[in-house]
């Protein structure tokens, strides 16, 4: 009996080990299956439109003509707006949290910024549609157009033309910025805190001001980490769905004006999936999803590779 017990426990050890290996393997299987499944279920669209899908502008369910360009364009533009706002803001917020604020203040403010990341994206959508978009339409957009005179400005005027409707690329970009801000800030804060005090102190000792230490020493020391943080934020912004769907306007057309309605890959999927009755329509939407998957996969891959290289060159810590 006891020998049987021994046998079982020995056996159980191996079983347990293989069970954990199996669990770990599911992660790889899921990742691989995502590509295979999406590609297989987009096969009609891939066969019909080929790679030209990426730059074809036409999206007409009535004629069964599908092209991804307006969605890709919207995804890239809204993400670009988000990054242009979120990256500098994250740098100065991280600066505030690490260098300037009293530790207690830093803890409270840092906690509040982190809470922004915990708010579900559909809440951003509700707030964006019912509160922020009207605010943009009534206050911000007229201010940009008239008070600052951007509508008539040479060169950049066309980005700010059109009726101030509130919903559109700019609003979507600002909300996206708010959503990725806490993620970028968190990494930047770690990067700033990782710079050895000796390095900073020697700069202070030479009479540098806090800002000079930050942008000449801290930022340069942590530049790779900062870039890594931006990649992570970028990946998040690209695939964000609900908040964008609520405020981007969902129109399949491309316009230079940031006040105009547009769409993104994710918002097209969320909006039109229920309507896709024809197989080719459904396959085109899944093809669109595959494009987004490849985009985010590449960005994440680059980010991970970058962070990994960073870890090797700087030792542990990040």
């Amino acid at each position: 009996m006891s020998r049987f017990g021994d046998y079982l426990s020995e056996h159980f050890e191996t079983l347990f080990r293989w069970f954990t290996i199996l669990c770990a393997a599911t992660v790889l299987i899921i990742m691989a299956a995502m590509f295979v499944n999406l590609a297989w279920n987009a096969r009609l669209a891939i066969g019909e439109f080929g790679i030209g899908f990426l730059w074809s502008e036409e999206w007409d369910p009535a004629l069964n003509q599908y092209g991804a360009f307006s969605s890709i364009y919207g995804t890239l533009v809204s993400t670009a707006i988000a990054m242009v706002i979120a990256v500098p803001m994250s740098v100065v917020i991280a600066l505030f949290l690490v260098e300037l604020a009293h530790p207690t203040v830093s803890k409270v403010v840092g906690g509040a910024i982190e809470l922004l990341a915990a708010i579900p994206s559909i809440i951003y959508g509700m707030w964006g549609l019912f509160v922020f978009a009207p605010f943009m339409a009534e206050t911000v957009q007229p201010f940009l157009q008239e008070t600052l005179g951007l509508e008539k400005a040479p060169l950049i005027g066309r980005f700010f033309s059109g009726a101030p409707m509130g919903i559109g690329m700019l609003t979507a970009g600002i909300i996206l910025a708010l959503m990725v801000l806490p993620f970028i800030t968190a990494v930047m804060r770690d990067v700033f805190a990782m710079v050895p005090p000796v390095v900073k102190e020697s700069a202070y000792g030479m009479g540098s001001t806090t800002w000079e230490v930050t942008h000449k020493v801290t930022l340069r020391y942590g530049i790779q980490g900062v870039i890594g943080a931006c990649f992570l934020g970028l990946g998040r912004a690209l695939g964000e769905t609900m908040a964008v769907t609520f405020v981007i306007g969902n129109a399949h057309h491309i316009s230079a004006s940031l006040f105009d309605a547009g769409n993104s890959i994710a918002s097209t999927l969320a909006n039109e999936f229920a309507e896709a009755s024809e197989p080719i329509y459904l396959h085109s939407l899944i093809y669109l999803g595959l494009v987004l998957l490849v985009m985010t996969f590449l960005i994440q891959f680059a980010a991970q590779w970058w962070v990994r290289r960073l870890k090797k060159s700087m030792g542990a810590g990040l």
Binding site: A25, V27, L28, I30, M31, L38, L238, A266, G289, Q304
Partner: peptide, 19 residues
């Protein structure tokens, strides 16, 4: 596996739904 986990964390949730 570790590398893939980090990548999976960044895959948009709508793609997971589609999958």
């Amino acid at each position: 596996v570790r590398f893939t986990i980090n990548i999976t964390m960044g895959i948009p949730s709508i793609i997971v739904g589609l999958f």
